[in-house]
């Protein structure tokens, strides 16, 4: 399927390392949607997102971003996607301005436009007092903000974030969340993995639950509640879904249950 109205369409995605990590995954995210991908440790979330970002090659299946097949035309896909990992991809010996100039250059953004955007982003993210200091001595929160500014400086249509709030203080986390919500309001699609279920509950329009490399549930919070059959928190729903999957896959657990 090559649907430009969908920000992301994944079909039959499969990837193994020493064991299968992603198994025949089908997933779609609409344009302008805030989508949260949840799952226990080792479920395959990061592997999925790294394949979407072009950091890993799938063994089977297709990925299309706004109708662009990431395997057939990787550069076109990359030009509209931004990837933010849990470990900020920042050079210790460049300043935030120098970093943003570099990123804008990689995405072929006009220098004048990039400069204006960088200045705005640096102000917006509260980095102005440190904009001319090398990133080497920055805290994790500041590095994450620099990385986020790098992701936004080329004005992507799809932002993929892997655990962006890990290690951030309350103030920085709030700022990052606000930036993402503002971007979604502007029509940008955001896909994020997180272990902070409260964040997913509050921010995401739709939530996908991954376990053992498969999508075990997907929908709005209300749809997920309906699925488990009671009015409860996302945490309870998540634990129910993951436990159910464990019982389905592990005969020993199923026998005990």
């Amino acid at each position: 399927m090559s649907d430009p109205s969908h920000a992301l369409v994944i079909e039959g995605l499969t990837k193994s390392f020493d064991r299968p990590v992603v198994k025949d995954l089908h997933l779609s995210v609409k344009g302008g949607e805030f989508y949260a991908l949840l799952g226990p440790n080792g479920a395959g979330k990061t592997t999925i997102l790294r394949m979407v970002a072009g950091l890993l090659q799938p063994e089977a299946g297709t990925i299309s971003v706004f109708g662009v097949d990431t395997r057939k035309d990787p550069l076109a896909a990359k030009s509209i996607v931004a990837w933010v990992s849990d470990e900020p991809m920042v050079y210790d010996r460049l300043t935030p301005y120098e970093y943003l100039e570099f990123v804008a250059g990689l995405w072929r953004i006009d220098a004048r436009q990039a400069q204006q955007r960088a200045t705005e982003l640096i102000e917006w993210l509260g980095l102005a007092p440190h904009a001319r200091q090398r990133c080497g001595g920055f805290s994790k929160g500041m590095l994450q903000k620099v990385a986020l500014a790098g992701a936004l400086v080329h004005d992507p249509r799809l932002i993929i974030l892997d655990e962006p709030l890990t290690g951030l203080d309350a103030g920085s986390a709030r700022q990052v969340k606000q930036v993402l919500l503002d971007k979604v309001k502007q029509g940008v699609t955001v896909i994020m993995t997180t272990h902070i279920l409260e964040v997913a509950e509050r921010m995401a329009e739709r939530i996908g639950v991954i376990n053992h490399g498969r999508l075990v549930a997907e929908g709005t919070l209300a749809e997920l509640r309906a699925r488990v059959g009671r009015e409860t928190t996302l945490e309870e729903i998540f634990l129910d879904l993951v436990a159910q999957k464990e019982m389905d896959t592990d005969p020993a657990v199923a026998a005990v249950a």
Binding site: A53, K78, S85, V90
Partner: peptide, 12 residues
């Protein structure tokens, strides 16, 4: 140091 950034950029 920013391997992911360079790989995800639209540069061959």
């Amino acid at each position: 140091d920013a391997h992911d950034l360079v790989v995800t950029a639209p540069v061959s």
